[in-house]
Structures are given as C-alpha cells and as structure tokens.
Simulated scan of single mutants.
Amino acid sequence: MTSVLSLIISIFFLVQPSELEIAIPDSIEIVIAAIDSGSSSDLAKYFDSSVSLNVNGLQGDYSKNQAELVLKDFFKKNPSMGFNLVFRSENNPSLSSYIGDYQTGQGVFKVFIKVSQQASDFRIYSLEFVKG
C-alpha cells in the first residue's frame, strides 16, 4: 500500500511544473506587453527598488518612482507603434538579459532589459532605451 502511495506522489511531482519555470516567462511577457503599450505604471511594477536607467542619453540610478516618471515622459513623447523582443539571454537562472526594438513615429529605439530572479521574485535592475 505504501509503495502505491509513493508512486502516486512521485508521479504528481513529476507532472507539476515548478514555480520558477512559470514565473520567468510570464514575467518577461508582462514586461514586453507593458513596453509595447507604453505603460510606465505597468512596467514599474517589476522595477527593483533602485533602477539603472538610460533613456536616450538621460542616464542615472533612480528610485522605482523616479524611474516610472522618467519613462512616463518618454512614452508620452514617443508613443509606441510596437515592441519586438529580438534577443533573450536566460542562461543564468538568477540574471537574464533581453534586447528589443521599440517602434515610434520618431524612429526605432533599442531596448536593453536586465533582470534579476530570486525564487519567484522577478525585478528589472537596468533598462535602456537608445535611439538606433
């Protein structure tokens, strides 16, 4: 009887995806959607407490709230015409990098996103929008 119970429990754990496997793709997809829609408030939900930000030459380390205001101004001046992720580097489980193209009426901006992952905590610690 105990061997049958052990078998059932083993199968249950093999079939269940781990929380970490779910958190990373879902989080980056939400970040991509926030950039695509030009939503600084949705994007700021994933900022670390301090964010290294470069928005077309305006560089610095900002608090979460300050970074949101800088991006709100950027998105207002450069409304989104689409965002396309072109590169993923997810080799290191705790640090990942992404590169994308942010389309606006004024041209294309390369976007560099760096995130840290601790358990299920997904945080952007560096973000750059550089006109290409």
Rank of each mutant, 00 (worst) to 15 (best):
M1F: 14
S3Y: 04
S3V: 08
S3G: 05
V4L: 11
S6T: 14
L7K: 04
I8V: 15
I9N: 01
S10Q: 04
F12W: 13
F13N: 10
V15C: 04
V15Y: 06
V15H: 08
P17R: 02
E19K: 14
L20I: 13
E21W: 02
I28E: 12
E29N: 05
V31P: 03
I32V: 15
I35V: 11
G38T: 01
G38P: 04
G38V: 02
S39E: 12
S41K: 10
K45S: 13
Y46D: 07
Y46S: 11
N56P: 11
G57M: 07
L58T: 15
L58Q: 15
L58D: 15
G60D: 10
D61E: 13
S63C: 06
N65R: 14
N65L: 06
L71P: 03
L71K: 12
K72P: 04
N78Q: 08
P79V: 05
P79I: 08
P79D: 15
P79H: 12
P79Q: 04
G82K: 06
F83H: 10
F83C: 09
V86E: 15
V86I: 14
V86N: 13
F87C: 03
R88E: 15
S89T: 13
N91Y: 13
L95D: 12
S96E: 11
I99A: 09
I99G: 02
I99F: 12
D101E: 10
Q106A: 09
Q106T: 06
Q106G: 10
G107V: 04
V108M: 04
F109L: 00
F109Y: 15
F109N: 00
I113T: 15
I113S: 03
I113P: 03
K114M: 09
V115Q: 05
V115R: 02
V115T: 01
S120W: 04
S120D: 12
S120N: 14
R123E: 05
I124Q: 02
Y125D: 06
Y125N: 04
L127Y: 00
L127R: 03
